[in-house]
Amino acid sequence: MATVEHTEEKGGPAVHHEGANGAGGDGVRRRDFINIAAVSAAGVGALAVVYPLVNQMNPAADVLALASIEVDLSQIQPGQAIKTVWRKQPIFIRNLTPAEIAEANRVDVGSLRDPQTLAERTREGKTNWLITLGVCTHLGCVPLGVAEGENRGEFGGYFCPCHGSHYDSAARIRKGPAPTNLEVPEYTFKSDTVVQIG
């Protein structure tokens, strides 16, 4: 009857369980290459699986579809402004009067907290169209001044009632805690009366 000590010596000494790579002083042995290769393949597979798990948190196709909108400007008279929504944010679109344009250009740009000319904030040939986000750059309230009769602040532009930021006719910050001018989004004119935002 076979006893407990039955062993066969051929095939090399007893393999001690020092781990798949058996780095018992030899470094990585050639016979362990396949083990490393298999584990690496598993690693590659794991990374490939992680990609969709992370990417699924990016905006879905229906959200991205609303990433750009078209607005019809034909109804906005000089001196009027409208509010609309783009990427869930308020947008102010104002048709500046020549007086407002002149006043904006008269300002010494160097004295501004966030120096920008009106020309830099509008499109060539369309400097009367001021399109900005309606989000105060201080802490995010929606400034007043779009609708008829609303307080337009001391500089004839927009006024944020939350902490008293005053914007001028080019929506540049003039007084109050806001650090920068109202943000101008990406936009292009599809025609004289239609603008695409985003």
Binding site: G11, A37, A38, A41
Partner: peptide, 20 residues
């Protein structure tokens, strides 16, 4: 690859494998 790694690890299993 996994098959060959398995075969490689088990190559000597039936002869002498001692837990020290």
């Amino acid at each position: 690859l996994a098959w060959f790694a398995y075969k490689n690890v088990w190559a000597n299993a039936k002869r002498t494998v001692r837990v020290a």
